Amino acid sequence: MTAFAVKQRYIQNLPKYLTLCEHNYLRALKLLPSDREVGSARDVQLGNNQFTIKVDGCAKYTMDISIRQLTGMLKGFNPLFLTVRLYHDAKVAEIVHHDYHQRIKPSYGYPNPQMHQKDEKYQLNAFLYDWLVACVESGRAVLNWDVDNGLV
């Protein structure tokens, strides 16, 4: 009798992912520029690294922001660049682009030529969560604490 290895696809835990995106949304609101118009930006100092958060686009229910590393880059590594979309109706935020690459797929087959992880979208948004927590708790910037826009 021969045993066949069944290759299982990665299935994302949707409640866990949405909870992560909800946390990202609330923290991202605190770091947005005060006027929240297209082109407005806010600088955040985190340790020896400086980042800028810029509003790239606004629509009725969404807002696109970019997070770009300005200083503190390590030699041989690309500076951080993320495009994050905030969905105001669902109150979630997720990364849609990273490091100038194409859109992030919900999951990837493994192995793949680009060496993406099966759960790369979740991992990137978990990184965004950690980065936002570090900025809110330890970063140096004037934060928007007035998030009483129907959230609280």
Results as ranks from 00 to 15, higher is better:
Gln117Met: 12
Pro106Ile: 08
Thr52Asp: 02
Ser107Cys: 13
Gly57Tyr: 15
Gly47His: 14
Gln102Arg: 11
Arg68Pro: 00
Lys118Trp: 08
Val55Lys: 05
Ala90Pro: 02
Gln117Lys: 09
Ala90Trp: 06
Pro79Glu: 01
His88Ile: 07
Cys58Leu: 14
Leu46Asn: 00
Gln117Trp: 06
Gly47Pro: 03
Tyr100Asp: 12
His97Ile: 10
Val55Trp: 03
Tyr108Glu: 00
Ile65Val: 15
Gln50Val: 02
Leu82Gly: 05
Phe81Met: 04
Asp119Ser: 07
Lys54Asn: 08
Gly57Pro: 03
Tyr108Gln: 01
Gly76Gln: 10
Leu82Val: 06
Thr52Cys: 06
Gln114Phe: 11
Ile53Phe: 08
Leu80Thr: 13
Leu86Cys: 09
Ile53Asp: 03
Thr71Arg: 14
Pro113Ala: 13
Val92Leu: 14
Gly109Ala: 12
Asn49Met: 00
Gln117His: 04
Ile65Glu: 04
Ile95Thr: 15
Tyr87Met: 06
Tyr110Ala: 06
Tyr61Met: 04
Pro113Val: 11
Val96Ile: 15
Ile95Ser: 07
Ala59Thr: 14
Lys75Met: 11
Arg68Gln: 15
Gly109Trp: 03
Pro113Met: 13
Ala59Arg: 15
Tyr87Gly: 04
Tyr87Cys: 11
Asp56Lys: 11
His101Thr: 15
Asn112Arg: 09
Leu74Ile: 09
Asn112His: 14
Thr71Val: 06
Tyr61Glu: 10
Ala59Leu: 09
Lys91Ala: 12
Ile95Asn: 08
Leu80Lys: 07
Gly57Asn: 14
Tyr61Phe: 15
Gln117Tyr: 09
Lys118Tyr: 02
Arg85His: 06
Asn48Lys: 13
Pro79Ala: 03
Lys54Gln: 13
Met115His: 09
Gly109Asp: 10
Arg103Asp: 11
Asn112Lys: 12
Val55Ile: 10
Pro106Ser: 05
Lys91Phe: 03
Asp56Tyr: 02
Tyr110Thr: 15
Leu70Gln: 14
Phe51Glu: 00
Ala93Ile: 07
Tyr108Phe: 06
Ser66Pro: 01
Met63Asp: 08
His116Glu: 14
Thr83Met: 11
Phe77His: 03
Gln117Asp: 05
Glu94Met: 10
Cys58Arg: 14
Cys58Met: 13
Lys60Val: 13
Arg103Tyr: 07
His98Arg: 04
His98Gly: 01
Thr52Met: 04
Pro111Gln: 04
Asn48Leu: 08
Ile65Asn: 02
Arg103Trp: 05
